[in-house]
Design a protein around this nucleic acid. Sequence first.
DNA 1: GACATCACG
DNA 2: GACGTACGTGATGTCC
Length: 932
Amino acid sequence: MTSNFGKGCHLHLIDGSAFIFRAYHALPPLTRKSDGLPIGAVAGFCNMLQKYVEDNAGPDAPTHVAVIFDKGSHTFRNDLYDLYKANREAMPEDLRPQMPLTRQATQAFNIACKELEGFEADDIIATLAVQARDAGGQVTIVSSDKDLMQLVGDGVEMFDAMKNRRIDRDGVFEKFGVGPERVVDVQALAGDSVDNVPGAPGIGVKTAALLINEYGDLETLLDRAEEIKQPKRRQTLLEKREQIELSKKLVQLDEATPLDFTLDDLVVKDPEPEALMAFLAEMEFRTLTKRIADQLGVEAPTIKDAPAKSEAEPQEDIPFDASNYECVRDAEALQPWLGQIRERGWVAVDTETTGLNEMIAGLVGISLCVEPGTACYIPLTHRASATDDLFGSDELAEGQMPLEEALALLKPVLEDPSILKIGQNMKYDAKIFARYGVAVAPIDDTMLMSYAMHGGEHGHGMDTLSERYLDHTPIPIKPLLGSGKSAITFDKVPIDDATAYAAEDADITLRLWQHFKPQLHQVQVTTVYETLERPLVPVLTEMEMHGIKVDRETLSRMSNAFAQKMAGLEAEIHDLAGETFNVGSPAQLGEILFDKMSLPGGKRGKTGKYSTGADILEDLATEHELPRRVLDWRQLSKLKSTYTDALQTHINPDTGRVHTSYSITGANTGRLASTDPNLQNIPVRTEEGRRIREAFVAEPGNVLLSLDYSQIELRILAHIAGIDALKQAFADGLDIHAMTASEMFDVPLDEMTPDIRRQAKAINFGVIYGISGFGLARNLRIPRAEAQGFIDRYFERFPGIRTYMDDTVSFAKEHGYVQTLFGRKIHTTEINAKGPHAGFAKRAAINAPIQGTAADVIRRAMVRMPAAIADLPAKMLLQVHDELLFEVSEDAVDATIEAARDVMEGASDPAVKLDVRLVVDAGKGANWAEAH
DNA sequence: GACATCACG
DNA sequence: GACGTACGTGATGTCC
């Protein structure tokens, strides 16, 4: 292949990222008028491109040009050194959505636009510059980045567009004190705090240049380091040789980046006015559009003042009308829908099933919607109604496409990476489809969008959202299914009724999506949605479908043992009471204790009944034998009914495993919630309860692996509130509760008693919960004044806590929400309420950023985990707030611990740089009791 | 279906 | 000055 590039050619390489960041910081945060899309950086970028084109139109005009961008955050340099660029700030929330637009802008100007996954722009620039130079051409790199200065030389120069200044060999020498060919040597020694290149400690650019000029190059210098007179310098160079050599690799540009294009592809082209105008008009840049139109001698398109027609925005109020819903009964009728979906690139999907348990429920029908108001329902396994079929309803109803045929037609669409599938609670539908061999991707989820934007404001179910944002009450399901004993499953619903109901759900989902989508960036939660909510769907889907093995025999044995013990206790209790009564009835127990036996401390709750909670019975236990027996009975009753009995019913007959369902939007703080069954509250605190975990087992040849964050909430508190003493204690690996106790009670660590430590521990937790004297007093069973004294002392010793609490509450009062370190917003609707509500809201506001940040951290870890353990015989099974449980082949335990721990401990990177390191403890065993 | 109770982090 | 108080969840049994 011969190239046309050669002598006489002049290549311009523009550092796109530099343009973007300069544009972003130079301009105020402009937004597009019609939908609020942040657009400031794009505007600045276009201005700079325009100016560049203008300035380079003369006789010196380049023959070839390209704008080069960075792509992805992980490059080969991260593999060399995992801390490379680790202290880089996360991209600002309002800049993110502008990144793809800058690429579009470049193309609109008809300038080549290049980027390559895994490489920095600088490497591509280096590769192209070398190719062009070697071909005999001339190169100008439009950038002032010092990292590019190593490329300057014969035929290659840089141009600082900001200062309007050329940078040649002399310019490089001025900056580094050496010529371009030795720049990397100087950089390797001097390091770079911005990119986190370590270099040689204590040596800056000046010293580095001095040394390099004296010894010729870095390698000679390092080989002859012994000769250096200054002892400190000599020692550094001898001891840090490896680090310096690594630094050189980090700063050295890759001049052989594998490119999928050639210099000839970069030949300068005239702008195509139509495309350029269309882009500028779409961005709604009025002045710039006009100016460029004038220059090109074309007419500027009119930019409407009225909100522009945007793809993700309802065009007008289209009424809900069931007569526009089509019942699709055969392949022929389905085809037009598939065509529309492919044309649009998105579709709202909803499934109807025989039940709410995704691991058991059968698929009954599928509804689709591509534009508001028109939707279809594809019935698949509806049963003939009783009137049609006197012999029961086992026969399939007439007029339905065979399930396999429908799935075969839909599968390519549902799995097409270029078609977005929109759902309300997509995890449910994805799990159903997965059981029928369809892997739905990519997805958007209106429930998760609502949660990201309105967490804490209201629920995120479809009915709530439809009423609130579409002003429409969906058809209720109750009349179709009935309730109680006579309730039927969806497959028994007549197809006509089902069509009206099901198609409407898809219609609502699409409308909600159009409503929410453009708002995500307006309220700055795009990153939260895209990194903490949506990616969790496939991860949780896999965990839930995999399930955890639970041994029925173990549970059954325990149930029997509990039943026996309970019977004995019950008899004793009745004896002590002098009558038989229902021990499980708090009301009856209260009367026995406080009326019949006249024990002290009888307090009536708001319903007029005595309270008989564990703490009250605990106090009463010193007075009488009965309360202790009841406490014991209650513990057994709880363990039996909630765990050993109920868990058995949740063992899936097909898989022999228990499949919980995680709710992503269940907790206001960002935590997950586990239901059906709840596997996040399996007993552990008492010895008897803990034994239930012995029933959670690994398959033969495997073990369970538990990795949990150590004190994650206190670490986050130390970071957020900026408590130096706490940070230091974590850095030193101290026992944090003992250290707190030592600080507060002036007890040296080596004289610490368990009781003092216990009190400090209660205070540490109290702080996370928004401490009060009353609460602490009750928890520690000490006088309220004493508890208040502890708290005062705590605030005195750790003054940042008070400030954090006050600042958080006032932020909540002003904004109506609080935020986690990762930008999750938790709305605090009651914060300005009067009365007792206010106290609750305050404490919740104080707790939310801490609990929520911890929740974000483990979410990030979970999202990254599948890739990290993909090559290992390991599966992630459960999440319990600060713990992840894995099942792994015995021979891969250590590798899995290492991989999973790396992910968990580094989960906050690079978005948030924590002042306190995250620490993960690991345990393994044949069952969960041993592993934890 | 509300309430009380208790399991977890 | 009084009020009511630790934060976040889900499942179970009683009782109306």
